[in-house]
Simulated assay, not measured.
Amino acid sequence: MRLSIIIPVLNETDTIGTLLADLAPLRAAGAEVILADGGSNDGTPQRAAALVDRVLQAPKGRAVQMNAGAKAAAGDVFWFLHADTRVPAEAAAALQAACAAGARWGRFDVRLSGRHPLLRLVERGMNIRSRLTGIATGDQGIFVTRAAFEQVGGFPELALMEDITLSAALRHLAPPACLRLALVASSRRWEAQGVLRTILLMWRLRLGYALGADPVRLAHRYDRARSRYAGRRSAAGSGDAAGAR
């Protein structure tokens, strides 16, 4: 089965080269790599162009971008990866073996890149919860056969939680293949916003979604929280600079 790797991006020029270097051997072996850009203005598509099979322009929104990539893909299996992910060399073989054994969809374990002790608890909790519930997040490198993806209608084009909702739909078709091999996800956002603060925020968002909150409102809440923290960091930085002068 041919593999199509779909990467949604928005201003990822600092990170995309590392992932594409990881994927270069897979592309040389016949995998298709598609970059679905949501309107980058930092040169991400130009930097990636020589290292992918196709660069698509799509409206901003991770779900919309991934659906556009899937629509253009030629493969029998879609593998959705975030731009700041690191992929071990044996990951594609593990994915293909799972599909050859009959898996209709699945995900990998995840390891966060940072060293903060709380990140070890976060990644362990993500992997255990996913294995128990059959729900995967985008950081876990969701893969799905074309037939199963089309049967559930692709990603719901939500502002947030599109990965959770897709997993729930796929779970009704078949249980996921939960591969213990770990992808490495960047912990930059966890560390930038504060690990504990981010844990609490994500749990509030997930609880709100489970209770029926509008994903658009949840996305706005997430963006406001990030903006408030960025503002505090900026103010603190200005104060430190003034003191130094």
Rank of each mutant, 00 (worst) to 15 (best):
S130E: 09
V110A: 04
R107Y: 15
Q140V: 06
L158W: 05
A159W: 06
G154V: 04
L112R: 04
E123V: 01
L132G: 03
Q151G: 06
L160P: 13
R124P: 02
W105V: 02
T133Q: 11
L118S: 11
M126G: 02
S113K: 00
G114N: 02
G114P: 03
L160T: 10
M161H: 15
R120C: 05
L118Q: 14
F143L: 02
W105Y: 03
S130L: 04
I142M: 12
L112K: 04
A136H: 07
L132F: 09
E157D: 10
R111P: 00
I135V: 15
F155M: 08
T145A: 08
A159Q: 11
R115P: 04
V110M: 01
T145N: 06
R129I: 03
S113L: 04
E162P: 09
V144C: 10
R124E: 15
A148D: 11
S113T: 09
E157F: 06
V144A: 00
I128E: 14
F155R: 09
P156I: 00
L121H: 13
F108S: 05
I128P: 01
R107D: 12
Q151H: 15
A148V: 10
G134F: 00
A159Y: 11
R146F: 09
L119Q: 10
G134L: 00
R111D: 00
G153R: 07
W105I: 02
F143Q: 01
G138A: 09
S113H: 04
E162K: 00
L121K: 10
L160C: 07
W105T: 02
T145S: 14
I142K: 01
I142C: 05
A147Y: 03
A136G: 15
M161K: 07
G153Y: 12
D109P: 03
F149D: 13
A159F: 06
D163C: 08
V152A: 03
T133H: 05
T145W: 06
W105R: 00
L121T: 13
H116E: 14
E150A: 11
